[in-house]
Write a protein that binds this DNA or RNA. Structure first.
Length: 639
RNA sequence: GCCGACGUAGCUCAGGGGUAGAGCAACUGAUUCGUAAUCAGUAGGUCCGCGGUUCAAUUCCGCGCGUCGGCACCA
């Protein structure tokens, strides 16, 4: 006797084992048709899994949000079957579901090209039409290895060899000819997948994510529950591409890049205004939070980097210069410089915490393939700071930092913050005891600040664990922006100390921290998040005074001067063009406020304000408009 | 760095073995106009670079550089 409890609490009893498919059919033919899989006691399982004991069962259909992952995983398998049918001799490796879609990695001497995708897609649809049954089988480990070796699937054989002994090897048979190693679960047949999928790109990827291994060809696709969702997703991607900071950077005349300075930014006047506005803003926030600002040399003798450990670990990524007898390195980071400032004179526990900030211009010779617009560059400015404190102060300093970061991110439109906690990497400096202490201190402090985080195992800096504050760009790529790293190693290596209450020397802890990460990257993220329509305080050009006729030219100049005298960034547009033309042009340039003046305004000393995206205008006296705009443009954190 | 695609005017792109074309932008002139494109005219190119094949290469081939999409890396 098997008792199946359904989500509504009702219980169905069967006198022999049943499958989810049986239960669905029992409930109704509509559900039987719609059923994709089941959740057994909350876990996603195959529809055809025999249920031999009492369970809680939910039938999963396309309406279930969890069904998407299942569909995507099946899409990957259908992709693999299609590829092997079209290109015999191609080896399959792995093919998981990912956010918005799926991929499958193939090994083949001849790589696929973009032109192959439509053919493969058509074949996938054919396989869906065939509605091949998908059945789970459990194989003996050695049999499975032998089988995959015999058909030339060496990667699959390698995968199975890596599984723990005695682990059951589950194989999914798709139709009568094709099968694949897979943990499952899967749909009951290929027809259930539907056709709301699309192959999107071809790319190289290393076997098992290791650059020492062979390069495989990865085919990416997106898959959805229905055509409407698919179309929406594709439109959304298209829209997102219009917000790409590289595109807006050019359209809005913010910056450019060119090959003679690969990975370094030429900031144009508007972009530099944005940059300075952001920098002045964060500077005030730092001053308010008790930081002192310094500036340290760009070129320093390599002995300093040998001492810190950076030479050993990052030499390849450093730009070097020779001078007389010395080897100098262009600084890739600011920490050692800050320790030099800290080490001037004797520090007392009364001096701590000492928060040393710098807008430090750093250079790193990033691999060419890593460069990406403003997001990943070779020359960048960190909003860097190092907090020298006692071990007892780690918790309160961490909390203060997180509070500050939250305020700044909120000011810039980021309220949901994703945080990763990265612990000790394989290659690291410092003893295990030191790492235990550093990890515990950072984790406790983070929890005390009430921050939700996910673990990023082994991804910490070589000298300490780190918190990463991750922001997402328009296309869905994640970038680390803010960071906080607890470091018990560098103070030791660079011999920082302070005199404690007990009169003895102690090591301070160093907290490395940044809120933006790099000015460049953060501006890139800001451009994409605001789609170039920055808040008034931040936008480079806040208002354009547009004339309707020549008669208003003098008055327009006076209006602009008044606005500028009140701290606003304003230009005039006195060109002999129709007002429609001017409105269109400045709207496309994303200027938030247009101040329109014609004969009427000149006579009454008024202005017509038009907001970006707004349909109508507001007629105000010049004084009132100035007052209002000045207030609206106030930088957050100022009074 | 690795795999793949791409590289033609400021931008978006077309073309093609016989030294290049459109739209928008730019420039000049006319128009003085009330809230998302006024009209007319002009100018603009080592077709990424270097080699090779050819009577002839921007076009075909090779190499290099760069960009883009991923992977790897990211102090």
């Amino acid at each position: 006797m098997v008792a199946i409890t359904l989500p509504d609490g009702s219980v169905r009893r069967y006198d022999k084992p049943v499958t989810g498919a049986d239960v669905a059919a029992d409930i109704g033919p509509g559900l039987a048709k719609a059923a994709l899989a089941v959740k057994v006691n909350g876990d996603m399982k195959d529809l055809l899994l025999p249920l031999t004991e009492d369970v809680k069962l939910a039938i999963v259909t396309k309406k279930d949000p969890d069904a998407l992952e299942l569909l995507r995983h099946d899409a990957a398998h259908v992709l693999a079957e299609a590829v092997q049918e079209l290109f015999p001799g191609t080896q399959v490796t792995i093919g998981p579901a990912i956010e918005n879609g799926f991929y499958y990695d193939f090994a083949r001497n001849e790589p696929f090209t973009l032109d192959d995708l439509p053919k493969i897609e058509a074949k996938m649809k054919e396989i869906v039409d065939r509605d091949e049954p998908i059945r789970r089988e459990v194989w003996d480990r050695n049999d499975a290895i032998a089988h995959f070796k015999s058909i030339g699937e060496l990667y699959k054989a390698e995968l199975i060899s890596g599984f723990p002994e005695h682990e059951p090897i589950s194989i999914y048979r798709q139709g009568d000819k094709w099968l694949d190693l897979c943990r499952g679960p899967h749909l009951a047949s290929t027809g259930k997948l539907g056709k709301a999928f699309k192959l999107t790109k071809v790319a190289g990827a290393y076997w098992r994510g290791d650059s020492n291994n062979a390069m495989l060809t990865r085919i990416y696709g997106t898959a959805w529950a229905d055509e409407k969702q698919l179309a929406e997703y594709l439109t959304q991607i298209e829209e997102a591409e219009k917000r790409d900071h590289r595109r807006l950077g050019r359209e809005m005349d913010l910056f450019h890049l060119q090959e003679e300075a690969q990975g370094a930014v030429f900031w144009h006047p508007k972009g530099w205004t944005l940059y300075r506005t952001l920098q002045n803003y964060i500077r005030r926030r730092l001053e308010g939070a008790g930081y002192v600002e310094v500036n340290t040399p760009m070129l320093m003798d390599k002995v300093l980097w040998e001492k810190s450990g950076h030479w050993e670990k990052f030499r390849e990524g450093m730009f070097i210069s020779e001078s007389e007898e010395r080897t100098l390195a262009v600084k890739p980071m600011n920490c050692p410089g800050h320790v030099q400032i800290y080490n001037q004179g004797i520090k007392s526990y009364r001096d701590l915490p000492l928060r040393i900030a710098e807008f430090g211009c750093c250079h790193r010779n990033e691999p060419s393939g890593a460069l990406h617009g403003l997001m990943r560059v070779r020359a960048f400015v960190q909003d860097d700071a190092h907090i020298f404190c006692t071990e007892d102060q780690v918790k309160s300093e961490t909390k203060a930092f997180i509070d500050l970061l939250r305020v700044v991110y909120a000011d810039l439109g980021f309220t949901e913050i994703r945080v990763k906690f990265s612990d000790r990497p394989v290659k690291r400096a410092g003893s295990d005891e030191t790492w235990d202490k550093a990890e515990a201190a950072l984790r406790d402090a983070t929890d005390a600040a009430g921050l939700e985080w996910t673990l990023n195992p082994g991804e910490g800096a070589f000298y300490g664990p780190k918190l990463e504050f991750v922001l997402r760009d328009a296309i869905g790529r994640d970038w680390q922006c803010g960071t906080l790293q607890a470091d018990f190693v560098l103070p030791e290596r660079l011999e920082a100390n302070y005199i404690g209450e007990d009169g003895a020397k102690h090591r301070p802890v160093m907290l490395h921290r940044a809120i933006f990460g790099s000015m460049e990257r953060f501006i890139g993220i800001l451009v994409e998040n605001y789609a170039g329509k920055f808040p008034l305080w931040l936008t480079p050009l806040q208002a354009v005074v547009c004339t309707i006729t020549e008669e208003a030219n003098d008055y327009a100049a006076e209006v602009a001067a008044t606005l500028r005298a009140n701290g606003l960034r304003v230009e005039t547009d006195l060109r002999n063009e129709k007002i429609n033309y001017k409105v269109r042009e400045h709207s496309l340039a994303k200027v938030p406020v247009l101040v329109v003046v014609g004969k009427k305004e000149a006579e009454t000393r008024g202005v017509a304000l038009r907001r970006l995206g707004g349909a109508n205008q507001e007629i105000l006296a010049l004084d009132e408009a100035t007052d209002r705009l000045a207030k609206e443009a106030a930088v957050p954190g100022t009074f």
